[in-house]
Nucleic acid binder design. Sequence first.
DNA 1: TTGTAGGCGTTATCAA
DNA 2: TTGATAACGCCTACAA
Lengths: 357, 357
Amino acid sequence: MADGPTINTIAERAGVSIASVSRVLNGLPTRQETVRKVMAAADELGYVRNAVARSLKSRRTHQVAFAMADVGNPAYLAMLRQIQPVLKAAGYRLVLHSTDAVVEDEIAVLHSLGERYVDGLIMVPLRVTEAHLRMLATARAPVVIIGSVPDGTRVDNVRADSRTGVRLALDHLHALGRRRIALVNGPLDTVPGAARGAAYREALGDLDLPYDEDLVRIGDFYRADGARAVAELLAARPDIDALMCANDLIALGALDVLRAAGRRVPEDVAVVGMDDTDLAAASWPSLTSVSLGSAERGKAAAELLLERLQGGESDPRVVTVPPRLAVRASTAGPAYGKYTDGKYTGETHAGGKEGGA
Amino acid sequence: MADGPTINTIAERAGVSIASVSRVLNGLPTRQETVRKVMAAADELGYVRNAVARSLKSRRTHQVAFAMADVGNPAYLAMLRQIQPVLKAAGYRLVLHSTDAVVEDEIAVLHSLGERYVDGLIMVPLRVTEAHLRMLATARAPVVIIGSVPDGTRVDNVRADSRTGVRLALDHLHALGRRRIALVNGPLDTVPGAARGAAYREALGDLDLPYDEDLVRIGDFYRADGARAVAELLAARPDIDALMCANDLIALGALDVLRAAGRRVPEDVAVVGMDDTDLAAASWPSLTSVSLGSAERGKAAAELLLERLQGGESDPRVVTVPPRLAVRASTAGPAYGKYTDGKYTGETHAGGKEGGA
DNA sequence: TTGTAGGCGTTATCAA
DNA sequence: TTGATAACGCCTACAA
């Protein structure tokens, strides 16, 4: 791994100055003869421009960071999958940060913007603390936050609307005749947990249904937590006829328990998940789920950031992505595909991509 | 966003030379008094070291690239989730490249190593072409390939063992008394497709089962392709009693069709998937699946690369990760969790993490 | 212990 | 049209 050639090497070889080499490489007006000599030398040497040196000089890295708690989380993954191509098309590389939902890690990422190894940052904080706000105020590069920040924070920000999302779900359940609708929520000190809890209560009110504390359970955002919560719920309130789950994993846990308890889904208990991940289509019965538009939020965030990077000095913008309800078998009853005669016509499963390697 | 402070700014403010500032910042022996002055100045100015300038000088970026076809693919995602923390712990940032399985993109990534924006690369090529080998031979930074490269290629490489993996599955099915085991494969011009096809044929031979072309179907690696293939298969060979699917998505498609056709799983037809993704545990019946150790391969690759980066100049190494069969309901019959008295005791579902935001 | 100066690989200015 | 030269921000001999 010998040292690669630099413009100096080329200059020598071509018998011109480094300035000329640089000009040719950047397509600035140069005599044809010189162009030829430089290109020839560059070719023979297998020259490739040093990105680090260019960055130092130009003060642009052509890199953007994306920071979220955990790539394994389908919601973040959906964002990532949209962010990546948008950035790539604009000539930016993507630096990935997993913060494991540790506040200090998020702060560290914000702080590290000062190192200038990226031109901008897209961040999805699980909670927004005072420390976040302080760092954001003095951030050394443009930042787009996916999630809600307090009004007045001078940061571009892309929001979900879980309030409307939860309402879509409850309206749907109500329209199906369900009246005892429980909520299986995540921790209340997370942004999504708090928002979904509040939205549930509000939507119930609008539907003239009573708010009953017994019908609300809190656990973590995992399948086992969902199972545990629903098991307790069934014991305490055997009469529930619908479950609103704060995410798809919780809903899968709910399905596990309902099956084990001999309750039919959706006949006895209808189940709604949230985030509309690939798991929703994969489960059986397939899961009705509220999509909060993770993919769209990722795309919007990337676009906002690119505008900033291309010089926009406007006021902070807020984009809100509308939710959507993906209705499947867990509320609407079996929607089996049909098999006849060697042909299968199925429901449209959101089918994630997969190769195997 | 005023220009951030540099060591010059600090030097002025502290009334010392930039060399002293640099020394203090790097913890080199310095008089206490000077240390104090420099630290104070740095603090007041909110100084952060410029990573780009450091890289230019040190010739190390502390960045590593990970290139694969598509993050949405659970197998790659599993790798990524292992790679990230290993690199992070070692002080490296992760640059993500999605190549969409386009060979030119992969070559471009290899080429871009010359730009020296990363210290090394982990790559998962879907196919390994001549062009790959040429680029690998002259790569300007250490590369670890996940997947198989021709013997003699001078590159560290981490392999799966799909041959043994397929054999595990077929042995399992055979032990369950299945004798007409079909294969639903992906494209034969991909590395995994070719390997799985060959392994199937070989394993059948070892089990003294006849190889029957009618029992082999080729489609793409997606759910709809799996459904289509299995629909045809059922029409052509209604007597099959087991399906070996080249990945989990194909297997989900198979389940769709079997359900629609009124075949019970596993009583009438047993189904095995491959890659053991989260979808396998989420589906119903839950899916027996061959794990090719994506996570382990990712981890191994990251560790190999780190060793290289820490100066290892040894010969190329080959690591092979053994497969594992995750047995679930789609072959072994229902393994329902139990619900009694407000408590749920379930099977251990591989539950991916999920937050929602 | 400290400061001066050169260099990492580019880009860009300014004369020639 | 070209070449010498000065940055970009940092590190590090080497000399003081």
